[in-house]
């Protein structure tokens, strides 16, 4: 008896749950089943699996088609694609485009947004899970979620027409008093509004709800026994957070922040509206202007007629795709099983 069990063990160990009831259709063995039913089963199964495969295929196809369209333009490119700061596609016979400044502006503005949003999101998530009265926690969370429901074009309009003039004094103060730090020195724009600084603040507002939502969800899952362990030692509310909530939720918070970063990297219309274009290369100041991958593509969208210039923009889109893919994949790996979505 025990020998048989031992023999079975190695085979059944590696594969996952062969005994889960739902994985093996119970009626399979019923002899009197109508054949139409079996066909229905296989058709349905095919449709469901096909839809799953379609999602995988969609990602592969996005990469593939962008690549196909980008290659001819990359071959015709006169500049170094990775190091050139210029992006000139006016003459289809003399393309010269590079992504250096696109990459820098994209990452710079997104990271700045992340730096602004992460501490606030952490505070909001802790407030919602550990501080807000129980009855108010859900409505409060809903309010923060509403931030995500506002379309990005409206954030863009608000950002340039309302927020930019309001925070310009802050920008001026930073520029005047802290201008010796490279972040705050005068950039490649003649003005202090419509800069990466302005855009970063708008992006921070836009990614706040996603970081908050993911962190909140994970913090709320902190096992009760860990919280009780800390409380029984006489921990204050803040110490309980330090001992139980944060160690448990740290990975979720980081994963949420990565998702927020991914969102900021790909944000298009708000950035296009808020951050001004600049004729000179970026200088690593928050008061620079310029294009991100997404805003450059959107700005040129109405001129997508000739294949080669269009391919140049598509190659920029391909880089953005790879960038967000990596960031989102990292987020998922960091989160482990704790975050869904």
């Amino acid at each position: 008896m025990s020998e048989r069990i031992e023999q079975r063990a190695p085979g059944s160990e590696g594969e996952e749950d062969p005994i889960v009831p739902s994985s093996s259709p119970v009626p399979e063995s019923t002899p009197r089943r109508a054949p139409s039913s079996r066909r229905g089963e296989s058709v349905f199964r095919f449709l469901a699996s096909g839809s799953g495969v379609l999602v995988v295929a969609a990602i592969a196809l996005i990469g593939l088609f962008l690549l196909i369209q980008a290659v001819p333009s990359l071959m015709a490119n006169n500049a170094n694609f990775f190091t050139s700061p210029e992006f000139s596609t006016g003459d289809a016979n003399n393309l010269s485009f590079g992504i250096r400044d696109l990459f820098l502006v994209t990452v710079f503005s997104s990271v700045f947004a992340l730096v602004l949003a992460m501490p606030v999101a952490l505070g909001v998530a802790l407030f919602l899970t550990n501080y807000a009265p129980k009855q108010l926690s859900r409505p409060f969370a809903y309010v923060v979620d509403l931030l995500a429901a506002v379309p990005s074009i409206i954030y863009g309009l608000w950002g340039i027409l309302v927020l930019a003039p309001a925070i310009e004094p802050i920008a001026r103060w930073l520029n005047t008093n802290l201008g010796w730090i490279f972040l705050f020195r005068t950039g490649n724009l003649p003005v202090l509004s419509g800069t990466i600084f302005t855009g970063g603040v708008v992006l921070a507002v836009m990614i706040l709800p996603i970081i908050t939502a993911v962190s909140r969800e994970v913090f709320a899952q902190t096992p009760r026994f860990q919280i009780e362990a800390a409380k029984a030692l006489g921990a204050t509310r803040w110490e309980v957070i330090r001992m139980a909530t944060l160690p448990y939720g740290r990975s979720g918070y980081i994963a949420g922040s990565m998702l927020g970063l991914g969102r900021a990297l790909g944000e298009t219309i708000a950035v296009l509206i808020v951050i001004r274009a600049s004729t000179s290369p970026m200088t690593f100041s928050l008061f620079d202007g310029g294009y991100t991958f997404a805003s450059l593509i959107a700005s040129a969208a109405s001129e997508f007629s000739q294949p080669l210039p269009t391919g140049a923009y598509i190659s920029a889109g391909l880089v953005l795709f790879v960038l967000t893919f990596v960031v989102n994949a990292l987020a998922r790996v960091i989160a482990g099983g704790k975050v869904n979505g």
């Binding site: 990602i59 088609f65 962008l66 944000e267 298009t268 969208a301 598509i314 989102n328």
Partner: peptide, 18 residues
């Protein structure tokens, strides 16, 4: 999860390209 993170501009470019 990856699809959820694909920027809308990339989705648009894909449809344009394909």
């Amino acid at each position: 999860d990856i699809l959820a993170g694909v920027p809308s501009i990339v989705a648009a470019l894909f449809v344009f390209a394909a």
